[in-house]
Design a protein around this nucleic acid. Structure first.
Length: 277
DNA sequence: AACCCTGCCAACCGCGTACAA
DNA sequence: ATTGTACGCGGTTGGCAGGGT
């Protein structure tokens, strides 16, 4: 089930997400959190708008999502909540752990809206079994993703980022200016660091400097953003990258920023630039 | 086997809200 | 008070799978 990939006028991809895109998004969000959806795709190497990334993460990739069929109890709760709340799907979904507003909404329109549809006709059962197969398939795909999570590295994020070529140039330079100066003067994005468990790849990241810079840079950005550091007021700021001038974060708690998702990177503590919280 | 029809649901779109400058 | 930006929500769309003819 693959929708034909297409692009909008600005070159942003639209339509069904590919496994590769999912991997990139999961890799980035689990490592750096969703500190700014608008900027995130740029650093994650995705040609998607932030809105699309957020939706994909919230409705499909979040590790705490509950997949599979709705239980009778869930159905009854949805019906009951809908009577009292109306079409406030997010409010209804809040009462159903692991279910998203989109999913609840779809489920309502598909199975619960018309009481007569609740009668389990033959076709319905067939449909249910089809849905079950789809759910199982999704679950398998998700497990595959999670199993592969330790293979996802900062380096991969960097490699797929639109800035990689600039970064290579930057990191291979013998310039004596600081990384920030390089970044700012060349319009280079956040550089990355190799994971502890990560072997440096075959690609042209002959040194780990670029990778290290990426993570350091991200840490610096987020540190500056969330701890009121002076990063944002440094005179080196440039206009090319809005994130450098990004206003104070809307996030107020580390768990929001880092999402507290149940990924078990062995080295997550070391890599998390926000662990000071 | 080929075509048509229908239901499902992932993803998009537009609008409202919150918040900072 | 106004404006700009980002996020979140709900309605809608459209591709695909599978059943029916």
């Amino acid at each position: 089930m693959v929708r034909t990939p297409c692009c909008d006028a600005s070159g942003m991809r639209k339509g069904t997400w590919t496994p590769e895109e999912d991997r990139k998004l999961v890799a980035y969000v689990t490592r750096y959190g969703c500190w700014n959806w608008r900027q995130l795709p740029k650093f994650a190497g995705l040609s998607r708008c932030g809105k699309s990334c957020r939706l994909r993460w919230m409705n499909y990739l979040r590790p705490d999502l509950k997949l599979g069929n709705y239980t009778k109890e869930e159905d009854e709760l949805i019906i009951k909540l809908h009577e009292s709340l109306g079409n406030r799907w997010s409010a209804i979904a809040a009462h159903l752990p692991g279910r998203t507003d989109n999913e609840v909404k779809n489920h309502w329109h598909t199975n619960l809206k018309n009481p007569s549809k609740q009668a389990m006709s033959e076709s319905k059962r067939k449909s249910k079994s089809r849905k079950r197969r789809r759910s199982q398939q999704r679950e398998e795909e998700k497990e595959d993703k999670l199993e592969g999570r330790n293979l996802i590295t900062t380096q991969e994020i960097l490699e797929s980022s639109e800035f990689s070529s600039k970064l290579i140039a930057s990191s291979s330079s013998s310039s004596s200016v600081s990384s920030n100066e390089q970044l700012c003067s060349s319009g280079t994005p956040p550089p990355a660091r190799a994971d502890n468990d990560n072997t440096v790849s075959t690609v042209d990241y002959s040194s780990t400097n670029a990778l290290t810079e990426y993570d350091d840079f991200m840490a610096e950005i987020i540190d500056g953003e969330f701890s009121g550091g002076s990063f944002w007021t440094e005179p080196l700021l440039i206009d090319d990258y809005n994130f450098l001038n990004y206003p104070p974060s809307p996030f107020s708690a580390s768990e929001v920023l880092f999402c507290s998702y149940d990924y078990s990177f062995d080295d997550i503590e070391d890599l998390n630039p926000l662990k000071i919280w």
